[in-house]
């Protein structure tokens, strides 16, 4: 390995190479914190920006891809329809790493259909939902993840039951489901690293407070509430293939999940015996946490064995978008055979 300066990573890039345009979101917005952890995660994993492609829908969250990875391709699509866009593009070059940035309005309302269908297809994509319970860009309406009874200025009281993104993801057969809190940057970063190495859909429901419209202390999407009620399932760290596990865990203290590329997620138990590969226990656990008004965070579910969307297709090793014209137009002779069949 070439000697590297302390300010560059394994691919010889500095952290600045992972930045984007200056944010135009409100100061203190949880989304900025997510963006910043994403930049750090990509830098620390030594990913090449050109190997990444960004997608988003519409909303404050979906503006965020402008603020990271300037050198990567990005597509800010339609409201609720980021998943379909990403699905099509990722077929063009399956060696790319996809990052989809969405919000609770984008994914849990207008985009619920595409959200659930991209789960069942297991598209390799890091699907981040910056979840603040409120429509920010249109100035503070309730979103579908807002808790029942939430009172917002000018909106009255929310009468409806909320949608739980994690729950929806699990029952739609997502293969990597996590919940985190923008106020817990280390966990966000480690989860992002793991998600970036998951071969399949990786949903991160990140409670990301809206400082302008929904950050009152009793709101379930506020910093204060998050800090007060967060219960981390485990102390989580992502260990790349090349790295040794530096921390010594005592027997039975940590659970290890091996990713498809041989990298590992180390989950050090905090105060329970949770197994994130056991689907059947998830719903009970979430239900219990809800009843106790806990913001349960961490890696909630992972399945590293399920085939990804691209495993289901007999695609060439070379990216489809690099195939030369002669490889995509059948021969003249074959058309004679086709004509003979047309009767």
């Amino acid at each position: 390995m070439a000697t590297k300066s302390p300010n560059v990573n394994l691919v010889n890039l500095s952290k600045a190479d992972y930045r984007g345009a200056p944010t135009t979101l409100c100061q203190g917005c949880g989304h900025n914190s997510i963006t910043s952890q994403l930049i750090t995660a990509c830098y620390e994993l030594s990913l090449t920006p050109e190997d990444i492609v960004k997608f988003s829908g519409i909303g404050c969250s979906s503006k965020a891809p402008t603020y990271f990875l300037d050198r990567a391709f990005g597509f800010n699509g339609l409201h609720g329809r980021m998943p379909s866009l990403a699905t099509g593009t990722m077929f063009a070059d399956t060696t790319l790493t996809g990052i989809g940035m969405s919000g609770d309005g984008d994914s849990a309302s207008i985009g619920m259909g595409q959200f659930k269908h991209v789960m069942r297809r297991n598209l390799p994509l890091v699907y981040i939902i910056a979840n603040n319970g409120v429509y920010g860009l249109t100035k503070g309406q309730f979103s579908a993840t807002a808790e029942e009874g939430l009172a917002l200025k000018g909106q009255g009281q929310n009468q409806y039951m909320p949608i739980d993104i994690v729950w929806e993801a699990v029952i739609s057969n997502a293969t990597f489901v996590a919940r985190s809190f923008a106020g817990d940057p280390k966990q966000v970063r480690e989860l992002l690293k793991a998600a970036l190495n998951h071969r399949g859909i990786a949903v991160l429901d990140i409670i990301s407070p809206c400082v302008t419209f929904n950050n009152q202390d009793d709101s379930h999407h506020s910093y204060a509430w998050g800090r007060e009620h967060e219960v981390a399932l485990h102390d989580l760290s992502y260990v790349p293939v090349a790295e040794e596990i530096m921390v010594d865990y005592e027997d039975g203290e940590a659970k290890e999940v091996t990713m498809h590329d041989g990298s590992r997620i180390m989950l050090r138990k905090v105060d329970n015996d949770y197994d994130p590969t056991d689907r059947s226990s998830i719903l009970c656990m979430l239900e219990d946490a809800n009843r106790r008004q806990e913001l349960l965070t961490g890696l909630i579910y992972i399945d590293t064995n399920q085939e990804s969307l691209f495993d289901l297709y007999n695609l060439p090793d070379e990216p489809l978008n690099r195939l030369t014209p002669d490889r995509i137009r059948p021969s003249r002779e074959s058309l004679d055979e086709i004509n003979a069949l047309m009767f």
Partner: peptide, 8 residues
């Protein structure tokens, strides 16, 4: 459209 953008 995603695929078209991707060069397919």
């Amino acid at each position: 459209i995603g695929a078209g953008w991707g060069g397919l």
